[in-house]
Design a protein around this nucleic acid. Structure first.
Lengths: 213, 213
DNA sequence: CCTAAATGTTACCGATCGGTAACATGGCCT
DNA sequence: AGGCCATGTTACCGATCGGTAACATTTAGG
């Protein structure tokens, strides 16, 4: 009854998993539906019974990548409850992993680059996801006591996206190699709210922790 | 003798111009050689008499984009001779134009994203070009008196590349909207060499110009 | 066990892809 | 005028693309 058999992975999930891998490696335009169906251990006909077009499969791919991003944010919050400063640090480490992972850059950005039609539904979805990610980061910066939290979120977003694309264009030894150091320097250059009400312009004591909670 | 007739644009130049435009708009994989030949007012056969493959045409496209970048650097040097600070400002303005131009991002980066084969000659060329650009920027930062010139060049490169890709993924109102302000803030946070030998830690007078020449 | 739904298999469609052969036409130089 | 070289034209090639029809097979549920 509750044994293994019922847990066999359905074709739909295998197709999504195969698309996830192949789209990531060869790009959206670089892989056909035949290849995906084959890699999923099924056939094109079954694929088209679950996705009415390749565009819909691309949308499912984007949603899958987005879900992984959502999982990341949840893990960050779970691993450092109430410690926004540690959450920001964790975000930075995970971001650095994304940069140096495998040199294929950001999957969402790659899709946006390959989808040159302005009104493609996947592009609109990606736009929402990217804005959402930036807003989450801004909220985290604010919680961590950064005064110009919006500006820092914008800056960190640009640095991360730049590092990922530079990893693709300039290789492992390019500007992305120093991403962590670069981001840390920028973060430290932003002023943080002191515990006291008055601004503290001391030129050395900018290192208090847990400013907000 | 020196009249107009001999100056008629040859098919080769028209093909490169058409490829420049179409590759930029629709991506490398998004446009076929037929379309390019047609847009160039010629035919596929003539195209293949000048370029032995589409890959070679892509290479010519990359070289064209690179030449435009070289022209930009020369204009920057010509417009502000001996004033490295003004040259850096000029670079920033031109970079901002690249970001907000037409929302198609960086042509070279787009090619690198679309060319998923690691050993494609165009990818190696792009890598050299990107590294070269970063080194030029680092030299400019050093000439402008920035102490950590290498670090600033890396940071500005990441910001620029990030802004261009964010313009594609997150739209006009995304993090790239504040690119100039973001970059300016970062630049100002980097220490500059004072004229005097001793470091000047004054908290307000960080605005001297023409520090080096 | 029997039925019905999900999946597999094969063949096919029109379109487009990168690339080539053969031949006709043009203009430029001696 | 003659000849040559660049270009234009047409047709074609095999491969692959996204997508579908018809039919066989398996699987699950009553």
């Amino acid at each position: 009854m509750s044994g293994v058999p019922a847990a066999i992975v359905r074709p739909r999930e295998r197709i999504i998993a195969a698309a996830r891998e192949l789209f990531h490696r060869h790009g959206i335009r670089g892989v056909g539906v035949d290849t995906i169906a084959d890699a999923a251990g099924t056939n094109k006909m079954t694929l088209y019974r679950h996705f009415e077009s390749k565009d819909e499969l691309i949308l499912a791919y984007v949603r899958t990548v987005a879900a992984e991003g959502e999982t990341m944010w949840q893990e960050i919050a779970r691993d450092h409850p109430g410690d926004s400063q540690a959450q920001l640090d964790d975000w930075l480490m995970r971001a650095a992993e994304c940069v140096s992972a495998d040199g294929r850059g950001c999957d969402l950005a790659n899709v946006a680059v390959e989808l040159t039609e302005d009104n493609h539904p996947a592009r609109k979805l990606i736009e929402q996801l990217k804005i959402h990610h930036r807003d989450r980061l801004a909220a985290l910066c604010r919680a961590a006591g950064v005064v110009q939290s919006e500006a820092l979120a914008d800056t960190l977003t640009l640095l991360l996206e730049g590092a990922r694309v530079c990893r693709v264009t300039a290789g492992r030894k390019g500007p992305s190699a120093e991403f962590i150091h670069t981001a840390r320097t920028v973060i430290e250059s932003f002023e943080k709210k002191p515990k006291a009400k008055r601004k503290d312009t001391t030129h050395k004591g900018i290192e208090q922790r847990r400013t907000i909670a």
